[in-house]
């Protein structure tokens, strides 16, 4: 060591330190190095496919054959496509109705489960079952429940003498829409309920005690203690819930394949049908890309909903 030190100090010109050397040891760059694997992962598996999807939407690519750039032709075509707009309407209806009901039922369930019930742990586990069952399996169960000839619901009602013929669950336009929305709600409620329950458990009981002493009613306690403290988790849960619902595919594909006459065709299913089944990759990509603004809007709304409460960042509330 000493030799090396002597030798180097003996030189008249100090050793050149390359840019690479600096980068390797610079503390400011260190964090960038540590982030590199994560960034590479995100670029490779998220940004690249997303970018590729957007690029494909500007081409006339077919399955197994790369296309040429055709500008916004796919979008112009979709603009005048009644089936596309029907799928937008269906998707919005599906998302808004299902998410709203999932929230209402989920919150109600969460409040119930937060009470001191007998067999509390078992009840909480049971509530999760619809969420645990693989979507395709539950969709197949619903497929039988909604069957036009063998529906258990129709059968029961017929034997009770309440209806004379089977209910056409999936063959009638509005029946089909409500049927798939119901199936989605059934599947999505546990996620909302259990997550909100987790939020409820973080609310300090002393707040409720103080409110009770002040003579607050049940409603007042919910409105002025539970609800405000639950808002951040509601924002997160609803963002996820809306995203999951908006991009739902399996349930629809198993139950109706978008039928009858595209009455339950969502943007996701239409995109798959056009891109993969019919081979029009470019057009399918355009439909997928058209989903992005809606999803961004959903994320931004909840993002600003979260940001509104400054106390979350450790400041006092306005």
């Amino acid at each position: 060591m000493a030799d090396i030190a002597l030798k180097s100090s003996g030189k008249s010109v100090p050793r050149e330190v390359g840019a690479w050397e600096r980068l390797k040891t610079n503390h400011n760059w260190l964090s960038a190095w540590f982030m590199l694997p994560a960034a590479a992962f995100l670029v490779l598996f998220l940004a690249y496919p997303l970018g590729l999807g957007v690029w494909l939407s500007f081409t006339d690519a077919k399955i197994g054959r790369s296309g040429v750039f055709i500008g916004s032709e796919n979008y112009e075509w979709l603009w005048d496509d009644s089936i596309f707009w029907l799928s937008v309407f269906n998707t919005l209806l599906y998302t808004i109705v299902a998410s709203a009901i999932k929230f209402a039922v989920g919150l109600y369930l969460a409040l119930l489960l937060n009470e001191n019930l007998p067999f509390k742990a078992i009840l909480r586990a049971v509530v999760l079952i619809p969420f645990i069952v693989p979507t395709v399996l539950s969709a197949i169960a619903f497929w039988w429940i909604y069957d036009s000839q063998f529906s258990i619901v129709s059968w029961t009602l017929r034997h009770l003498g309440l209806i004379s013929s089977n209910i056409d669950f999936l063959g009638d336009v509005w029946n089909a829409r409500w049927a798939v929305i119901f199936a989605n709600i059934w599947r999505g409620v546990p996620f909302v309920a259990i997550t909100l329950l987790a939020g409820l458990q973080t609310v300090s009981p002393s707040l409720y005690e103080a409110a009770t002493i002040d003579g607050a009613s049940n409603w007042q306690r919910f409105r002025y203690i539970t609800y405000p403290l639950l808002t951040p988790i509601i924002a997160v849960v609803m963002t996820f819930s809306v995203l999951f619902t908006f991009t739902d595919f399996q349930l629809i594909w198993v139950l109706t394949r978008g039928g009858p006459v595209n009455a339950t065709q969502l943007m996701a299913t239409l995109s798959y049908q056009r891109a993969i089944i019919a081979g029009q990759l470019g057009e399918g990509a355009a439909i997928s890309t058209a989903m992005i603004p809606f999803l961004l809007a959903a994320i931004l709304i909840s993002w600003f909903g979260l940001q509104r409460r400054k106390w979350q960042q450790g400041e006092s509330n306005d």
């Binding site: 069957d147 063998f150 013929s165 089977n166 063959g171």
Partner: peptide, 18 residues
């Protein structure tokens, strides 16, 4: 029979066999 608007490929098989 009512419901054919919802039929996929397998519906008529099971309805016929049923």
């Amino acid at each position: 029979i009512p419901g054919t608007a919802s039929w996929n490929d397998s519906f008529n098989n099971k309805a016929f066999l049923g």
